[in-house]
């Protein structure tokens, strides 16, 4: 079940269906949110950034958790596929966190008047981005793929234990330094016609992530198992 050829076969079979479906969910959610959802009575239309910002922030965090789970599987059972999952998920997590940061900055400019605020949530998202970059830097500097997988697994497991401490300490730092002038936490009360498109966007983002992950995994499997017979057969039949 966890063998790379088996996974590769299923991913190749499902992706032509799965990618268009996930794209359409995303497009439906975005069109609904950006085009048809009512505008916010306080912020006007600029709140529509939420339909990109919130799903990518959610994904950025949950991908990190996912990586820690894959990482512990890779460390405990030495499952090859788990290491490949981790390696493929890290750049995606960094991408989504980056989108969350950029969209947050662009949203901040018209609403608060600055691109950046040293708010607890923004800061921990920034730290999360740094953690992703560290993991990517670590495994790409190690030539031996298996060793790279295990090193990245180790640091993501350690990181996921430290992340709650980072969050807690960032909260303290917040209370220590400034009475927060902007509160992001008190979000405008959402009506259901704003909430539903957001929900669809979140689902669409998850689907997109899964299809991107499978795409990357296929490449990872192909490059690593290059010299096995099944890869050669696959390539010779397909080309």
């Amino acid at each position: 079940m966890g063998s790379p050829p088996f996974f590769f076969k299923w991913a190749s079979r499902l992706l032509p269906w799965f990618s268009p479906i996930s794209f359409s969910i995303l497009i439906i959610g975005l069109i609904w949110g950006v085009g048809f959802a009512p505008s916010d009575y306080k912020q006007g239309d600029v709140y529509r950034i939420i339909f990109v910002h919130v799903p990518s922030a959610i994904l950025g965090q949950s991908i990190y958790l996912m990586m820690a789970i894959f990482g512990s599987i890779c460390l405990i059972w030495r499952a090859k596929l788990a290491g490949m999952f981790l390696r493929s998920a890290a750049p995606l997590g960094a991408s989504f966190t980056l989108i969350a940061l950029i969209s947050g900055a662009v949203w901040g400019k018209p609403t608060w008047g600055t691109w950046w605020v040293w708010d607890a949530r923004l800061t921990s998202t920034l730290i999360l981005f740094f953690l992703y970059v560290g993991i990517i830097g670590l495994y790409s500097s190690i030539d031996n793929k298996q060793k790279g997988d295990r090193a990245a697994s180790l640091i993501s497991v350690v990181g996921v234990i430290i992340v709650p401490i980072i969050k807690k300490s960032v909260d303290w730092w917040q209370t220590l330094h400034q009475p927060s002038t902007f509160s992001i936490t008190s979000s405008p009360s959402m009506t259901s016609d704003m909430y539903f498109p957001l929900l669809i966007c979140v689902i669409g983002f998850y689907f997109i992530f899964v299809s991107l992950l499978c795409n990357r995994l296929r490449v990872e499997i192909l490059t690593r198992e290059r010299n096995t017979t099944w890869v050669k057969e696959y390539l010779n039949n397909k080309v």
């Binding site: 950006v34 239309d45 600029v46 529509r48 990109v52 989108i99 949203w107 400019k109």
Partner: peptide, 9 residues
């Protein structure tokens, strides 16, 4: 702002 974010995304 909104379109820029969508573009980046």
């Amino acid at each position: 702002y909104v379109w820029f974010v969508l573009l980046i995304f």
